[in-house]
Design a binder for these strands. Structure first.
Lengths: 125, 125, 125, 125
DNA sequence: GTGGTCTAGACCACC
DNA sequence: GTGGTCTAGACCACG
């Protein structure tokens, strides 16, 4: 599993990890039953405190996305793909709504806003 | 000057105040040379601690948007409109880029993303 | 009397006025018995609040540099020149000591400091 | 890190702290990547309110001299030494220019001024 | 009246 | 443990 962490962008690291796992499952990069990397392994790979990875995994367990396999670590739960697709939609919808709200406070028109989006979308060129 | 503060959305109150002032100047609601509301006045109006408003105003001074008039309060600096338009563009561009990046990590296509935007834009209905 | 006021350099305006008068007397620009400008006159000339000029004059009276002449305003007191020369020496000595202290905290050597002085002294070129 | 604070000299405490850190970095007493003392630690050491230290540190962050390491404190940023040497030069040059201007308004000659400097410089005795 | 500084103490998120 | 935010209230200098 490949994971990009940005320790400076305000989003808590444990949440970035959780999202990356969520997205990977939603995309089918991680399949049901497959093991995620161990806490230690992922922690060293990301140069992050193991507690932080542990926290991310703990929250993924609490939402039923990961399930512990005795003695071998954590695996993707059967219900995870649906949950993750739904979770992805929810996260992105929230973020879009938030940035739209901000743009409106700033007095932008829809046209101006769409220009910003197209400018930011890399493959739209 | 009208100002909407949401104490629950994670963004620090002092930063929300700073942005509202920035937007007001960028929009021309606050003109060069005009006084902003006094710290105490705005604090009571927003039901917020005066220190919080003072912090927002202090940062606006440090960036040269507000300038102190000894004993009479703070006024909009001559260079402020340009700075504020630029600042507004910068804030929104950053946020759009960030959410676009997130959407791509989640595997969204541009079409799907634009649907989210249109759904979130209130006046597009 | 000519007076240069800088409203942005942190030094209170009333104190800048007081110093300018002190220096003028020490230099002999203002002679014993001569009248200083009226509060209103100087205030309009400097584009400053009359209270501020009044405060400066009040403090000069309290130190015996200015003396009130019934009905005609304030005049330079007989003892003023000596006081002002002493006052000038005191003010400058304090300021020099303060900046020297700062330079030493910053780890500067005497040589480096003298370079700064020569660079700043306009007629030393 | 050793720090001398004088609560009576008009200069705000938070600014004195900021300067001491700046000087320490400029002198090489604080190296790049090294942690500065924690807010609470320095606050107790200086017998000052933690908020005051926090404010000093916040401004050093805003200028890019300190950089936060999530959960472990603040460290000296890579560009800090250059910035701090430049900042030190700037602070001292400003102060020297200001006192030189004052001396000239007071009618001093360069010779007289240099005498004051030598008298004030402790190790020149 | 204005802003600026400082203190004291609470609460939060993160590591 | 770390920094960050916010509140509450006191005091000061300035105009």
């Amino acid at each position: 599993m490949i994971c990009h962490i940005d320790a400076t962008n305000g989003v808590p690291i444990y949440e970035q990890i959780g999202r990356q796992v969520t997205y990977a499952i939603a995309n089918g990069s991680l399949l049901v039953g497959e093991h995620v990397p161990s806490v230690r392994e992922l922690a060293t790979q990301l140069a992050v405190n193991p507690n932080t990875v542990a926290r991310a995994y703990r929250e993924l367990q609490q939402t039923g996305i990961l399930t512990p396999i005795r003695g071998t670590g954590l695996a993707v739960a059967p219900t995870a793909p649906d949950q993750c697709r739904e979770g992805r939609r929810h996260i992105l919808q929230d973020r879009v709504e938030s940035v739209v709200r901000e743009a409106q406070q700033g007095g932008l028109q829809l046209d101006d806003f769409l220009k910003l989006v197209h400018a930011a979308w890399p493959t739209s060129a």
